[in-house]
């Protein structure tokens, strides 16, 4: 982790859907190589916060800088930001109309990051990394949940992002498949990827996170190193939440 280089700067972020205020006032800085895990009860705004970072949700107030690019500014070419910010979804969202290899090659080839041969080579390398090189020609519906999610991670990595967002990546998985996905994520963290992870896997958070954010009611109520948050939570809401889930 490099605490001198701030990758993501969020200040006073707000987001409302019509009258419902989902994010009230979020401010946080995330450094290069830092692994930040966001926990909190459902409806607390965790996913919305994550989705604002690459403008899948349009924020209604505040400022977000990703690598110095202003995500909240309509004039910013958001596609350029997204090329550098990979995202992994709860429901994988692999492209059903393509096999695994073409899922991985689509964006790099389409956005002219590399030629077809280069993209194929890189895709095979990424599949190797997530342990699925034998599935290159399979279609998504022929894979298990854990395999789908590992492909989804590989697909995001093919764009060579320097930040990865994970939106509850193991919540839709059968319990026996959670481990294989978390392993891939641990490996990524070890290699120094900047990661923001929304998850309910407290064990994983404790092991991998540099910092844990606890969110509730559209606010970050508490943040700190995992041992502080999990052993000595200060905020009563954090205590209450951890009592329920641990």
């Amino acid at each position: 982790m490099n605490p001198d280089k701030i990758k993501i700067h969020v200040s006073h972020l707000q987001k409302s859907f019509k009258k419902l205020e989902v994010l009230k006032d979020i401010s946080v800085d995330i450094c290069e190589g830092e692994v930040v895990v966001v926990i909190g009860p459902s409806g607390s705004g965790k996913s919305t916060f994550l989705r604002c970072l690459n403008r899948l949700e349009e924020s209604t107030g505040g400022e977000i800088l990703v690598d110095g690019m202003d995500v909240t500014d309509r004039k910013t070419d958001i596609n350029k930001v997204r090329e550098r910010v990979g995202m992994v979804f709860q429901h994988f969202n692999l492209f059903h109309n393509m096999n695994v290899l073409r899922n991985l090659m689509l964006a790099p080839v389409d956005l002219k990051k590399t030629d077809k041969e280069g993209a194929r080579k890189q895709a095979m390398e990424m599949l190797e990394r997530v342990g699925l090189s034998d599935k290159a020609n399979a279609y998504p519906q022929e894979l298990s949940g854990g395999q789908k999610q590992r492909v989804a991670i590989a697909r995001a990595l093919c764009m060579k992002p320097d930040i990865m967002l994970f939106d509850e990546p193991t919540s839709a998985l059968d319990p026996e498949m959670v481990g294989e996905v978390l392993e891939v994520m641990k490996e990524l963290a070890r290699l120094g990827m900047t990661m923001i992870i929304v998850t309910h896997e407290m064990g994983f958070a404790r092991e991998v996170a540099d910092r844990v954010l606890f969110m509730d009611g559209g606010l970050i109520l508490e943040e700190g190193a995992p041992e502080e948050i999990f052993q000595h939570p200060q905020n009563p809401r954090t205590q209450d939440f951890l009592n329920k889930v641990l």
Partner: peptide, 18 residues
């Protein structure tokens, strides 16, 4: 078509029409 399909495409940096 599930909205997640377009979101995944957009999250990779593809423009809407692509």
């Amino acid at each position: 078509v599930d909205a997640g399909q377009m979101e995944a495409a957009r999250s990779l940096g593809l423009p809407y029409w692509r």
